[in-house]
Design a protein around this nucleic acid. Structure first.
Lengths: 189, 189
DNA sequence: GTCTATATGTTGATAGAC
DNA sequence: GTCTATCAACATATAGAC
């Protein structure tokens, strides 16, 4: 007899979602498992059924973010011109600028925090920066730039530095200004 | 009769120094007062005689850092050409690049961490970025640049973004590359 | 799978002897 | 001023009933 497979609990998904949000807004260390349980509506003691440790939890959050970055790039690949793809990346930055002003870059700020830990998960966070950088460099290569690596580093530094400045100054105009600068720069080169 | 004033205890100074070092290397949240006591050689219970709360401690650390930034600028003011002053700023970045690779920027990474707290001290950290930015903009103004504000923002974003990238990639060449880029950029404009 | 109750450890901060 | 001893709160993680 056919039996409908029980739908995998969506509690795990909810926990990852809440954890990702709170780690961004409040930081990893400042977010307790109790906070995550409350935000997701899952009882405190139940969290450890899905995630053995807090490190496992952030590890899955980072894994999720990696997948979303990758599918993000897949979307851009549909554009034939690498310049348009890079401009598309700026468009996404524009979209989330208000969150960046409030809480910093969801990737960059987490990297800086975790790099101070002695946890293996820090390398996983740094990996997110690396795949972004790798993709950006690939775009410059496709544009036949010989110094593609340096250009890619400059691009990524500008973006992450802008996020940090906007967060520190609490001013989204910082992001507008730098997006405009990068757009005109990419056009010229 | 003359009496030599008792030399103010240097314990407070030692505590601030250790706290500053550890907040940079390990982060604010991950550094316990016990860690600071141990590093500075001051008994745990004695810390609270000098600093009522942990927030008071970081507040004085930030105050110290502000003074050092200001005396740093005073030194640069001796140079007649604003371009040389900005290049001097890059020289200081070069000097501390290995620490930045290991622990991130001592100002930027702390700002990002504290901005996620709900503590008044976050604004004090952001203030450090603001006085740096203000000084940089002043240099561009002296160079008669009409878009001095944008240029200053770009300069600061580049520096802080580079620090974040170097920390994430664990590679000091990132800093070398961006310093070279900023040096040639400042020459041309 | 789900949840309550709780063990265990660490934290920031205090009280009070010297 | 200095330091020991300790409190109270909170953290992560676990045990075990349902």
């Amino acid at each position: 007899m056919l039996r409908v497979m029980p739908k995998a609990s969506d509690k795990k998904e909810k926990l990852i979602e809440s954890a990702g949000k709170l780690f961004h807004q409040v930081g990893f260390n400042q977010t307790s498992i109790a906070d995550i349980a409350e935000d997701s509506g899952v009882p405190l003691g139940n969290v450890h059924y899905y995630f053995k440790t807090k490190a496992d939890l952030i590890s899955e959050v980072l894994d999720n973010r990696k997948k979303s970055i990758e599918s993000w790039f897949e979307e851009f690949e549909k554009l034939p011109n690498p310049k348009d793809r890079l401009v598309g990346m700026l468009g996404d930055m524009e979209k989330m600028k208000h969150k960046v002003v409030k809480y910093g870059c969801p990737v960059g700020s987490l990297c800086q925090e975790l790099d101070k830990e002695r946890m293996p998960v820090a390398k996983q966070a740094d990996g997110l920066i690396k795949i972004q950088l790798k993709w950006v460099i690939a775009q410059f290569r496709e544009l036949r730039k010989k110094d593609a690596e340096e250009l890619g580093l400059h691009w990524m530094s500008s973006i992450h530095g802008t996020a940090l400045m906007a967060n520190a100054l609490k001013d989204s105009k910082v992001i507008d200004s730098e997006i405009a600068r990068l757009k005109s720069w990419i056009k010229k080169i």
